[in-house]
Structure formats: structure tokens, C-alpha cells
Amino acid sequence: MEPIMTSGSFSDAESVQTETILERFNQVFLTHDPAALDDLVADDCVIENTQPAPDGSRHEGKAACIALWRGIATMQGAHFEPESIIARGDRGEIRWRLVWGADHASSVRGVNLMRVRGGRIVEAQGYVKGA
């Protein structure tokens, strides 16, 4: 597996912290091990998920966000291919491809737009490329 590219990140302390949190978060999905989520997700976290169209589902609070991400991280027969992580202050983005089959048509590219506060994720909006 190729390392995640982190081009475009800023080098100020807040950006470095955000990038570190997003890299740790991304590892949950690459390793299918959601154990780190408890330390990464804030009590007041809010997720706007990629599905269902057109706006995705909204998940509020630490328990709801962890439950959603745990389910995604442990999906059988699927894996994420990382593309990049970019951090700017308290904001960041993770670009990825979700693969669930052998051919290219059995995958989708997406991005998570994230916000970090106090070393924890407080906001995530997920988007995927559609037809």
C-alpha cells in the first residue's frame, strides 16, 4: 500500500494537529479497527453522511458518530484506498476510494470534510462522486 499523500497541508501548530488527528482517524478505516474512535471523536460531534441522497443522514453526538463510523470501518468485503489528507487550521479533508468488488465499477471516490477542536473531530461531511 502506498503512503497517504499529505501535500497542501500548512505547517502551523493547529494544522499539524488537525493532520495528525485525521491520519489517526483514517487508520481506523484502513486497518478495520475502530478502537481509536473513542479518543478521536468529540462529545458534540456531528456527521452528515454520504447516504441517502440527496442530503445524507445526520448523526449527532459521540455515540451516534462512533456507531456510524464503526459500522463503516468493519464492513465485510470492502476496503478504503487512501488518496490524500490535507489540513488547514482546524479544517481538513480526506480523499479516498471505497472498493467493494474486483472491478473498477465496484468502487466510488469520495471525500470527507472535517473540523477538529481540542484534538477531537467535531464535524464531518461526507461526499461521493455520483452518476
Rank of each mutant, 00 (worst) to 15 (best):
M1T: 14
M1V: 13
E2W: 02
E2Y: 04
E2S: 14
P3Y: 00
M5S: 14
M5C: 13
T6M: 10
T6A: 04
S7E: 14
S9A: 02
S11F: 06
S11A: 15
S11D: 15
A13S: 15
A13V: 12
V16Y: 00
Q17V: 01
T18S: 06
E19W: 07
T20M: 11
I21S: 02
L22N: 07
E23S: 13
E23N: 10
R24C: 09
R24H: 14
Q27W: 05
Q27V: 09
V28F: 00
F29L: 10
L30I: 08
H32G: 05
H32V: 00
D33P: 01
D33F: 01
P34W: 02
A36P: 14
L37I: 08
L37R: 02
D39P: 12
A42N: 08
D44E: 13
D44Q: 09
C45D: 09
C45L: 04
V46E: 15
V46M: 11
I47C: 04
I47N: 07
E48T: 11
Q51M: 13
P52S: 00
P52I: 00
A53Q: 11
A53E: 11
D55G: 06
D55E: 09
G56A: 05
E60S: 11
G61C: 04
G61Y: 01
K62C: 04
A63N: 10
I66N: 04
I66E: 08
I66G: 08
I66Q: 09
A67T: 10
A67E: 14
L68H: 11
L68Y: 13
W69K: 07
W69G: 03
R70Y: 06
G71C: 03
G71R: 10
A73G: 04
A78Y: 06
A78Q: 10
H79D: 06
E81G: 08
E81F: 03
E81N: 09
P82L: 11
E83P: 00
S84R: 13
S84K: 07
I85Y: 05
I85H: 03
I86G: 01
I86T: 15
A87C: 04
D90Y: 01
R91N: 12
G92N: 08
G92D: 07
E93C: 08
I94W: 10
R95C: 13
R95A: 11
R95F: 08
R95E: 12
R97Y: 06
R97W: 02
R97N: 04
L98C: 14
W100P: 07
W100D: 11
W100F: 13
W100V: 07
G101L: 04
A102M: 04
A102T: 07
A102C: 00
D103C: 06
D103I: 09
H104N: 06
A105P: 00
A105T: 11
A105L: 06
V108P: 03
G110A: 02
V111R: 12
L113H: 14
L113N: 10
M114N: 12
R115D: 02
R115S: 03
R115M: 10
R115K: 15
V116Y: 04
V116P: 03
R117K: 12
G118R: 12
G119R: 13
G119E: 05
G119Y: 10
R120F: 01
I121N: 03
A124V: 12
A124S: 13
Q125H: 15
Y127V: 14
Y127M: 12
V128P: 00
V128L: 15
V128Q: 11
V128F: 12
K129Y: 06
A131S: 10
A131G: 14
